[in-house]
Design a protein around this nucleic acid. Structure first.
Lengths: 109, 109
DNA sequence: TTCCCATATTGCAATATTAGAATATTGTTT
DNA sequence: AAACAATATTCTAATATTGCAATATGGGAA
């Protein structure tokens, strides 16, 4: 049905799944990596970096913003996008937890 | 168009975006967390754990398998699914790299 | 004000994803 | 072999996502 059933999952699971989903597109993942590396956070520089049209990138940015992965602030004529470290730390936490739990299990396969 | 443009992105970016996308669904994220925690890896136990019908879960499992996040091995009448640690480490690496790079930047916002 | 420049929004067509009923498959037990 | 148990596949509908042209918005410069 194209609609995701959320009943029966914790809010935390559903919310973090949305965050991972946002990372699950080459353009959005590339934007996150660009923002983590570059000293620039100007929207225009992202548009130059990513091989998609400006409206498309604008939409991807708004999706990253919707799930809280980035924040945008207006700088005169430009917009500066930055990674929200708190949100990113939540992602890191989930990934690390799985790793930790994996190590404490005896593998069966 | 519902189709994702991959031209212009590195293979690594595209491939890892697919991995994150696979994690971007409550059921699949819950499956990964279950597999990391539980000593059981039997498909039937996953079906009992996740509030979706068996065919739906089977499909989610096959998607996790497609991107290499889990492996399945037949154990008689059952199937045992386990997390592929190599793939998981790649996820962890990306997340950690972003964190590291973030810390070496002076934030602008 | 008028003209640019940077970014966001809208609208639409093409494609992808999701869920589960029905069914198929494969292995086990009797 | 027949009956059963566990899992996978197929099918279909509803819904979501993607990309971009066209357009809107809002700020700075002339």
């Amino acid at each position: 049905m194209g609609i995701t059933k959320t009943a029966g999952f914790t809010t935390q699971t559903t919310e973090m799944a949305d965050v991972f989903k946002a990372l699950g597109h080459p353009a959005r993942l590339a934007i996150m990596e660009f923002l983590s590396k570059s000293t620039s956070c100007i929207c225009g520089d992202i548009v130059d970096e990513i091989p998609l049209a400006q409206p498309t990138i604008s939409r991807h940015l708004s999706e990253l913003k919707k799930v809280g992965l980035i924040q945008g602030s207006i700088e005169g004529k430009n917009v500066c996008y930055c990674i929200d470290e708190n949100r990113w730390n939540e992602v890191k936490q989930i990934v690390q937890n799985v790793s930790t739990q994996l190590n404490s299990l005896n593998k069966c396969c």
